[in-house]
Design a protein around this nucleic acid. Sequence first.
DNA 1: ATTCGTCGAGACGAGGCCGTATCAACGCGT
DNA 2: ACGCGTTGATACGGCCTCGTCTCGACGAAT
Lengths: 202, 202
Amino acid sequence: MPTDGRRVPAGAAVLRADITDAIRDAVFAELAEVGYGRLSIEAVARRAGVGKTAVYRRWSSKLDMVVDVVSTVAGERMDLPDMGSLRDDIEMILMIAGRALRHPLAWKVIPDLLAEAARNPGIAETLHRVLTANQRGMGSQVVARAVARGEIAAEVDPDLAIDLIVGPLYWRIAVSRNDLPKADIQRLATSAAAALAALPPA
Amino acid sequence: MPTDGRRVPAGAAVLRADITDAIRDAVFAELAEVGYGRLSIEAVARRAGVGKTAVYRRWSSKLDMVVDVVSTVAGERMDLPDMGSLRDDIEMILMIAGRALRHPLAWKVIPDLLAEAARNPGIAETLHRVLTANQRGMGSQVVARAVARGEIAAEVDPDLAIDLIVGPLYWRIAVSRNDLPKADIQRLATSAAAALAALPPA
DNA sequence: ATTCGTCGAGACGAGGCCGTATCAACGCGT
DNA sequence: ACGCGTTGATACGGCCTCGTCTCGACGAAT
């Protein structure tokens, strides 16, 4: 006997998770294919094989939908294993980031969202949260270890460190769209380690 | 006395240059405001204060128009003055590129076009032509000078050199959207010079 | 003065997407 | 067995854009 009327909705029926997942996948596919600017809710529903109703019941707008989907997928934080040296820590970061950026969805979607962030505060805030926070964490981690090992003299600004480490990688893969073979990644790692060591103190 | 009928169209009237210029400006403004994906010819004409006719008389499609406009504006090649040292050459590049990237139109339009290039061969080809060619030229130039000065041992891949020089700058300004004060540019220059010197040979 | 192409304006039908509403069918908890 | 919310489908008016076409006006060369 329920104590207070219809707190529990009586005959249930919750938003089906498999449908939410199908929509999520469709959002990414559409983002890759036409970008955020051209993305339409109708096309997402069509691709997911669901009705517009199912979409609008979950999110109130395109921005809402994309922000939520991106947050869900990109939210994972990661801890970087200590590879024993600054150079090897950097190589590890480059390998991980490189593998992520090579994903056919990622290298179309990420630059698109970054560009959209320049004019859309909602997108900007989300990306800042899921990307920058993560990276700054890795940056501080690597810098702290290198200082502890005595590999670099003074504290280095973690932001500049990240610029020096992932900047060249992103430029190559996402901007120049040139291939970046493993050998080049290793050379970049050696080079970036030297760059960090040579970075003048603030 | 005309030698052959109407080779010269009789009563002239050429496409007016001032109107072409107005359209060009409008294209950039629209690109910055809504991006390539959402850019519409109608909106361009409206913003330029011209009729759609004037636009369609010049270009046959949105892709045509954007490619041509971008080529026209970004086509300038530049020679880098010899600053006397690798580090100072790099600082010069960073100052020039940094100033360009800070332009309110540039840092909205460039990432947008780069993202669009991932799915649009026409855009990709154009950007490759106007950007990469220019940069590779600067890269080879800087590397050659540094080798001649004895600052770096062996020949260095100009592509990797460019990655190391402009990658961090682009990442900071166009991706992280953090401010990059002049002091940081100078530190980046010192650091990038060390990175080039430490780059393992191919 | 005439001629001809460009100019802005806007009409046109077609088509896409918006956000809402309505419908019968289904499935789940009671 | 029943009730309820979700489901896909479809329709709606409204808005925007497409690419083409027509119109009168203007200007420059003849």
